[in-house]
Computed example of a mutant assay.
Amino acid sequence: MAIDPLINRLGQQFGELLPANLRGVRNELEDNLKIVLRDALARLDLLTRDEFDIQQTLLSRTRGKVEALEQQVKVLEAQLTALEDSLRTPRS
């Protein structure tokens, strides 16, 4: 969800909840609330959904590569152990 429509909706809902004697300053209060919300959200350093999805895809690929490398290491360790065993065993 885009941030601006959310902030606008929250500002509007806030304005609708104001008591009748504050309705005259409704637009000013809504605008100030929107500014405060944008500032607070900007300081949170949030990701967009697209950025999150991209990072999730990259993480998945990286995880696959790590798993493949782990398998290669196991094969190489087994080969090394077999080679070491064959060198230790006296030949007849």
Rank of each mutant, 00 (worst) to 15 (best):
15 G>N: 03
39 D>R: 11
13 Q>G: 03
73 V>K: 01
32 N>V: 01
55 Q>A: 03
5 P>F: 00
22 L>N: 01
19 P>G: 02
29 L>C: 04
6 L>I: 09
92 S>P: 15
28 E>R: 10
35 I>V: 08
41 L>I: 08
1 M>A: 13
44 L>E: 12
48 T>L: 01
62 T>H: 13
50 D>A: 11
63 R>Y: 03
35 I>C: 08
49 R>A: 13
23 R>Y: 15
31 D>E: 07
91 R>G: 15
23 R>A: 14
57 T>E: 07
80 L>N: 02
83 L>F: 13
14 F>N: 00
60 S>D: 14
36 V>S: 10
33 L>P: 00
58 L>P: 07
69 L>R: 12
68 A>V: 03
48 T>Q: 02
56 Q>M: 09
90 P>F: 03
29 L>Y: 06
53 D>M: 09
56 Q>K: 09
13 Q>Y: 06
21 N>F: 15
14 F>D: 02
81 T>F: 13
76 L>E: 09
54 I>F: 05
47 L>W: 03
75 V>R: 06
3 I>V: 07
28 E>L: 12
74 K>Q: 11
79 Q>A: 14
88 R>Q: 14
57 T>W: 01
78 A>K: 13
87 L>H: 05
35 I>L: 08
71 Q>M: 04
45 D>A: 06
20 A>T: 12
57 T>S: 06
77 E>P: 01
13 Q>H: 05
23 R>G: 15
83 L>V: 05
26 R>H: 06
83 L>R: 14
65 K>E: 07
82 A>E: 14
57 T>I: 02
30 E>C: 08
25 V>L: 05
60 S>R: 13
70 E>M: 13
92 S>A: 15
41 L>R: 00
7 I>M: 02
21 N>E: 15
61 R>I: 14
22 L>K: 05
27 N>E: 12
10 L>A: 05
65 K>A: 05
19 P>I: 01
45 D>Y: 06
53 D>C: 03
32 N>T: 01
75 V>N: 04
92 S>Q: 15
20 A>S: 13
69 L>D: 12
2 A>P: 11
36 V>A: 12
40 A>T: 09
35 I>K: 10
22 L>R: 09
66 V>C: 13
9 R>L: 10
31 D>R: 04
46 L>S: 01
83 L>S: 14
67 E>R: 13
86 S>M: 11
84 E>Y: 06
87 L>G: 04
89 T>F: 11
37 L>P: 05
55 Q>I: 03
79 Q>I: 07
4 D>K: 11
78 A>V: 04
51 E>G: 03
26 R>M: 11
28 E>F: 08
28 E>W: 10
29 L>W: 05
48 T>V: 03
50 D>I: 01
76 L>G: 00
34 K>V: 03
31 D>L: 04
10 L>C: 02
21 N>P: 15
92 S>Y: 15
82 A>R: 09
90 P>G: 07
34 K>E: 04
44 L>I: 05
21 N>S: 14
8 N>P: 08
65 K>Q: 14
56 Q>W: 07
70 E>V: 08
59 L>C: 08
74 K>H: 08
67 E>N: 12
46 L>N: 00
71 Q>N: 03
29 L>R: 00
61 R>S: 14
4 D>G: 02
87 L>I: 06
70 E>Y: 09
55 Q>V: 02
57 T>C: 02
14 F>S: 00
85 D>Y: 04
